[in-house]
Nucleic acid binder design. Structure first.
Lengths: 144, 144
DNA sequence: CCAATTCCGACTGTATCTGTCTGAATTGTA
DNA sequence: TACAATTCAGACAGATACAGTCGGAATTGG
């Protein structure tokens, strides 16, 4: 019941992009340095985000990545679902319908449904823009 | 971001125990049969619950297990934490305090905290007694 | 042409999940 | 007392996911 590094890194990556993208693409090396994450691993993660259309890439020197849309258009839920898959905690509670076969009415499924709803409620109501704002507040409190 | 079979089985196991324990111990074989779970695997799981004091065991013939307290005394959260560990989705958001070292104020941590709170809110407010009740309602709707 | 980038896929070590298997210890009952 | 039904304990193992690493190809601005 943990969120993997892939998901956490993806979030930090996009947050970084949201903060530092001023119109020009931002290259991975810089992000990796700022976030202290292996560049090679980030590469893997951002390629996923690229294919999903979350970011856009520019190749060649001075190339890099940029967000495809405004930060407020990205919810944490979208990002985590891309990297983690469905956030509902067990498969048989997903929209695919349960095939567990037990005829007991599968009382546990209710627990998983409630849990899934609570999780989605949180992650679908936080956007990258919120996180950018939080970060700015932090920086005001703790100026370097 | 999934709950493992261990956690799900533990829940079903205890629910079964709550439903079928009439004062006499219930043996694993019966539970395994009803729940269609490998007896050997259940053994492993219930041993954990036994050590944690959730159930009590009686050895020898006619032996088995019984709940140590009333079903209303067990929350889903207690059970899942025993089998899954902390339910907060990443370690640095736990009460142990973050040691991630990044000085950015760790904005992502806020996300994990909110998520953790939402999860706990759900699982700590469902008890085994609730689940027993749900199951009885199901049985009224779908009599065999 | 060169160097900075992204892009792609193979590889690897570690851990976790999901059990299985063997056998010992306990104890009610015949 | 002997037997059989149980729990108890721990080693073993196959599959999968996690968390990267590595090498190199493709693209393109200067």
């Amino acid at each position: 019941m943990k969120i993997s590094t892939k998901g956490r890194y993806a979030l930090r990556l996009l947050l970084d992009l949201a903060v530092y993208s001023t119109g020009d693409p931002v290259c991975l090396k810089d992000i990796a340095k700022r976030q202290q994450i292996s560049e090679k691993y980030l590469e893997q993660i951002i390629s996923l985000l690229n294919k999903a259309g979350v970011v856009r890439s520019v190749r060649g020197p001075q190339g890099g990545y940029m967000l495809n849309r405004a930060p407020s258009e990205y919810t944490v839920g979208m990002i985590l679902r891309l990297t983690e898959g469905e956030l509902v905690p067990v498969s048989c509670a997903g929209q695919s319908g349960g095939e567990c076969g037990r005829r007991e009415g599968c009382v546990s499924a209710r627990v998983w449904e409630q849990l899934g709803e609570a999780i989605n409620q949180v992650v679908d109501n936080i956007t990258l823009a919120d996180m950018v704002k939080w970060q700015q507040e932090e920086e005001e409190k703790n100026p370097d």
